[in-house]
Nucleic acid binder design. Sequence first.
DNA 1: ACAAATTTAGACACACTTGTCCAATTCGTC
DNA 2: GACGAATTGGACAAGTGTGTCTAAATTTGT
Lengths: 227, 227
Amino acid sequence: MKHGISPDTFPPRSHEAKRVSVVGAAASVFCREGYAGANIDLIAAEAGVSRQTVYNHHGDKEKLFVAVVRDLTERCNAGIFATIATFPDQPGNLEADLIAFAVRMNRNCICNRDGRFLRKLIQAEGERYPELFADWREQGPGRTWSALAARFARLAFAGHLSIGDPDVAARQFQALVNAELQITFMLGGTPTEEEVLRSATNGVRTFLSAFARKRQPAGKQPVLAHA
Amino acid sequence: MKHGISPDTFPPRSHEAKRVSVVGAAASVFCREGYAGANIDLIAAEAGVSRQTVYNHHGDKEKLFVAVVRDLTERCNAGIFATIATFPDQPGNLEADLIAFAVRMNRNCICNRDGRFLRKLIQAEGERYPELFADWREQGPGRTWSALAARFARLAFAGHLSIGDPDVAARQFQALVNAELQITFMLGGTPTEEEVLRSATNGVRTFLSAFARKRQPAGKQPVLAHA
DNA sequence: ACAAATTTAGACACACTTGTCCAATTCGTC
DNA sequence: GACGAATTGGACAAGTGTGTCTAAATTTGT
């Protein structure tokens, strides 16, 4: 059964496939039940492997937890940076472009599986494993905020916005755009596409009301006059 | 020892005092360790009572957890409404008054012991006990948001602000004022007085930039020109 | 098809936790 | 000082979870 085209992708497939399957199931169970409440047997069952395989691959409950956090952190950061790369540097319609960007950010980074899981793990276990989340804090918020701030600074430099401190503006943008999703996030739920769009729309409009450039060529004001 | 003035407050003191002591210790341990990780022996030790006393008073781990949540919800809501009562209806200096209000809200409701504990319990166990947090959601966010929105509506009606939807404005006010505290909140920390003040100041300034009334008597613009 | 590595199911020891029971002690009240 | 209620510390059974071990079954590479 080694003739070129085999239905299973690769020789070392099952092994690696099981590893990621275990990490995925572990993320789900750790988030649902908390670290203390998580049960290795349940993780193994949910991953479709035996308990012994879990121990063979990751050795320990705590090591498995660390692997889960590292995995989530890595994928979440990648997603956030990929989305920041789609920031509208030369906006046609500033309001519409920023709303679309905010929706992308929410859908691909904040509300997706990895984002919700990582957020919950940080909230639940962040105090108990401070050193574990240190590199999340450095490479996550530490880098993404300034990356986003740089994009807003460029937008201001190009004359589309009037911003005092780009770091503050970036954080306030995020806060405004998620303002109406806080309670849903708190309870671990996933907001509907419509809720995301409405929160983003309201947030971007307020953001632009506050940061629209003060002096602009006559007759070329950005379109904000909906509400 | 029942003569009017006794050093210990009341006849039925020890009994009730122990009850609240247990609930307080339980809140602390449930938050630190999660429901599954919380240990009755540890709660008893932290409350300074024996394990049997915990069972005598609350009967069950789950009943104790419910008592903790009810207690926290009640006190938090009381604090929030008491603070909303101090909303500046007739502001002398709108910016300064709103900043002071935001700082009060943070210090007395969001960052204090009860606020942090309740938030963490909701985030950690909200999915697993949906019915338990139902009345929190109704009487907590459900009422406090509209109470705050009503205050902003009055402020707009009196001509101090130009607001489209008061509910949206109230949520965005909260989001802006806490924008720079999100990461600290996530990790369960307590921001410093200075961080609270800075976040509130930046948030209120942006809020007023967005919602300052559009037409105002000449020469009476609110003071926003710091940054 | 064969040999090596991996996976599996089950049993197992060990530790921990919950909730109960009970005798001894302490506390509040008269 | 004495009575009754509450509290304490400890022992206890039952259940659960972690991590290890083993022999059998399966999969993988050659």
